[in-house]
């Protein structure tokens, strides 16, 4: 094992996020097994399905870079879904709905940030607890039933196209570009990097560590809110069961995309391709008739393998 790790070719290859390899491999599998699936229309539909996941990942990569994690995305999706489709805000405008989604996301994100940054609670426990609190509350309000219909105009926007590309995909790419600029060009991006690399060193260099962590969690909440908005638009009827597996998929896609806990490494585009890999994975699984339990196993295995890959890499560089 050690010889393999010291090999320069392996070292060079291991610097490329596994998402790219997985993406190419799955593309090859599809190309060999089902070549007729590979056209822009079908791919557009499948990629459009993972847009909520893709937006959630934009937040997840941010918190994972500051050595934290956010598993409360599912609750934001259910909360926003409930708020939009129930009779609470009947016939409101597009802007109201969007503000509602963003506000609930940022609210939950800020609480997460406070628990992780100030109270120093383990991020997994804090966000998982937050998750079951909000889900419990929403299910109580909805008494376990689907709350109601999603406004039609949201559906129309979701199904529309901009220059032959589905609008949600364009929206996702624009958001990814914005996140990329935020991380590359802004002081906040530098802070995220230094806190992720070494919190103690960051503190002594005058980086506001707590503020960065809280802000990262608030932004992750914001992204979860936007993801929830897109997810809700894709539905005709509201549901209190949808999107519960998205946070864990987001973690998987982010790890696959080369973001490592406690390391400033990893950009926006690795996770982006991580999400695309998941889109292809769903296509492959559907065409090979693998159902839900098999998908769970595959998701877990992907997280584990990607984490092992990085574990070995960091062990080799010590």
């Amino acid at each position: 094992m050690a010889a393999m790790l010291n090999n320069s070719l392996f070292a060079r290859l291991s610097r490329i996020p596994p998402a790219y390899f997985v993406f190419v491999a799955l593309l090859l599998v599809l190309w060999i097994a089902r070549p007729h699936m590979l056209n822009t229309n079908i791919m557009g539909i499948f990629i459009r399905q993972v847009v909520p996941l893709g937006i959630l990942v934009l937040g997840q990569l941010l918190v994972m870079r500051v050595n934290s994690i956010d598993l409360s995305g599912g609750s934001v999706i259910i909360l926003v879904n409930y708020l939009i489709s129930s009779s609470f805000f009947h016939d409101a405008s597009l802007v109201t709905y969007f503000v509602l989604a963003v506000a609930s996301g940022v609210g939950i994100g800020l609480i997460n940030g406070y628990m992780v940054g100030i109270r120093r609670v383990s991020a997994v426990i804090a966000t998982l607890a937050m998750n079951i609190i909000v889900i419990g509350a929403v299910e109580f309000l909805a008494s376990g039933k689907p709350p109601g219909a999603v406004p039609k105009f949201l559906n129309e926007i979701y199904n529309s196209k901009l220059w032959t590309i589905p609008t949600p995909i364009v929206f996702w790419i624009v958001l990814s570009l914005m996140m990329w600029v935020l991380l590359k060009r802004f002081v906040f991006g530098r802070n995220v990097m230094s806190v992720g690399e070494n919190p103690t060193a960051a503190r002594f260099s005058g980086v506001p560590v707590e503020r960065t962590v809280i802000l990262a969690h608030a932004l992750a909440g914001l992204m979860a809110g936007i993801a929830a908005f897109v997810q809700t638009s894709s539905l005709v009827m509201g549901s209190v069961r949808i999107g519960l597996d998205l946070p864990i998929l987001a973690v998987a896609a982010t790890i696959l995309g080369g973001v490592v806990f406690g390391k400033g490494e990893g950009g926006v585009w690795g996770p982006f391709f991580g999400v695309l890999s998941f889109a292809l994975l769903f296509v492959v699984m559907t065409t090979f008739n693998i159902d839900e339990p098999g998908k769970l196993v595959a998701q877990g295995a992907i997280i584990l393998l990607a984490a092992i890959f990085y574990g070995l890499k960091t062990a080799g560089s010590k």
């Binding site: 998908k295 196993v297 877990g300 295995a301």
Partner: peptide, 8 residues
């Protein structure tokens, strides 16, 4: 990860 694999 193990949680998902075993649940599956």
């Amino acid at each position: 990860a193990m949680q998902f694999i075993i649940l599956g």
